[in-house]
């Protein structure tokens, strides 16, 4: 336990550790980083160091993982993460226009957060596996499919 890894966070990391044989603590890195990010919004070298310490790994191995996966953020971001799919199936059905609509209505570009810290518009490269409901987006990992500008406005407004 440390200032960064509270006892609650340690419990949550332990839950990931519990899935793997005891000698493979490294396997819990992704889970631990996700939990730390869930707690603090983004990762910092200090937070990754704390994870490295807890799992008994060289910090550099945690940095490597932290910088490889796009699910990890390294700058402060808004409370809610909006990820618009613009990959091929959504692109064919107006995904880019959906993204442009959101950018316009929030006044930010993909990759940025709103000034009030409410919404982070993730720069999403991957297909989000909602192709049959294209165009679609995820808000905090919840799928919203068959989007229209009106539907989007309602969804975004409801975010606190």
């Amino acid at each position: 336990m440390s200032d960064i890894l509270t006892s609650d966070l340690c419990d949550r990391i332990d839950a990931w550790l519990g899935r793997f044989p005891a000698e493979h603590r490294r396997s819990a890195v992704l889970g631990a980083l996700r939990e730390v990010q869930k707690e603090y919004g983004h990762l910092t070298p200090e937070r990754m160091d704390a994870v490295a310490d807890y799992l008994g790994l060289p910090a550099i191995q945690v940095y490597e993982v932290g910088s490889f996966y796009t699910g990890f953020q390294h700058q402060p971001v808004g409370r809610h993460t909006v990820a618009v799919c613009t990959n091929i199936s959504c692109w064919l059905r107006g995904g880019e226009e959906i993204l442009a609509h959101i950018e316009k209505s929030l006044g930010i570009r993909a990759g940025e957060s709103t000034e009030d810290g409410r919404i982070f518009l993730k720069s999403e490269e991957e297909c989000l596996a909602g192709c049959c409901g294209a165009p679609m987006m995820q808000v905090d990992h919840v799928y919203h499919e068959n989007l229209t500008p009106e539907k989007i406005d309602k969804i975004l407004e409801a975010l606190s």
Partner: peptide, 8 residues
């Protein structure tokens, strides 16, 4: 391990 490959 002092050096690593970061990003992708």
């Amino acid at each position: 391990q002092e050096l690593g490959a970061f990003g992708r």
